[in-house]
């Protein structure tokens, strides 16, 4: 994404913050909607738009789980593995999905690049344990192992998102 596009997104909210630095997270999140992750060029563009160094921007981005500095799949499937979900079978769900997609224990991206499966820490849907979040906006549960597998099939068939909200 270019610095100009990022500026166009953040300029209307500049007045809401006493310091420009506050715009770095909104800028990073917005830049990520384009490809679903942040390339070094994106980091540079953000840095330019908010007048910080690219190294600083990268350091901020790397702090947060939901900003990706490496390419990830078209859809990111986060399986909550924290205590409430664990008690309800999240490990079984996670193992099943990883096995199904041919991934290692802690997840990864499927060979076709469509699905990234990752462990998540408590997603705040413990009442729906075990829960799964697709990208950042749809969280559902409870899932059985089979239902979780079906979810991946649905995602594979779904249209490519126009923007990625991770």
């Amino acid at each position: 994404m270019t610095a100009d596009e990022i500026r166009a997104h953040i300029d209307p909210m500049r007045h809401e913050f006493a310091e420009e630095r506050s715009l770095v997270l909104p800028a990073l999140k917005f830049a990520q909607t384009e490809k679903g992750y942040l390339s070094t060029e994106d980091l540079r563009a953000v840095a330019e738009a908010v007048h910080l160094t690219p190294a600083y921007v990268e350091s901020v981005a790397s702090f947060y789980d939901r900003l990706y500095l490496e390419p990830v799949g078209r859809r990111v499937v986060s399986v909550c593995v924290t205590l409430s979900c664990m008690l309800r079978g999240s490990d079984e769900v996670m193992e099943h999905l990883c096995h199904r997609e041919g991934l290692g224990h802690h997840g990864g991206t499927s060979e076709d690049g469509v699905i990234t499966v990752q462990e998540a820490q408590c997603l705040g849907y413990c009442d729906a344990a075990p829960c799964i979040q697709v990208d950042a906006d749809q969280t559902r549960g409870p899932f059985t192992v089979e239902q979780a597998g079906e979810l991946l099939d649905e995602l594979r068939d779904a249209p490519v998102p126009t923007r990625y909200v991770r």
């Binding site: 160094t53 190294a55 600083y56 990268e58 790397s62 702090f63 500095l69």
Partner: peptide, 19 residues
């Protein structure tokens, strides 16, 4: 100069520059 930073967090924290 803003070029040397800490990246990642927790036990994975490391000193680095822009990749």
């Amino acid at each position: 100069d803003g070029c040397l930073t800490m990246q990642e967090r927790g036990a994975l924290s490391e000193i680095t520059t822009l990749t």
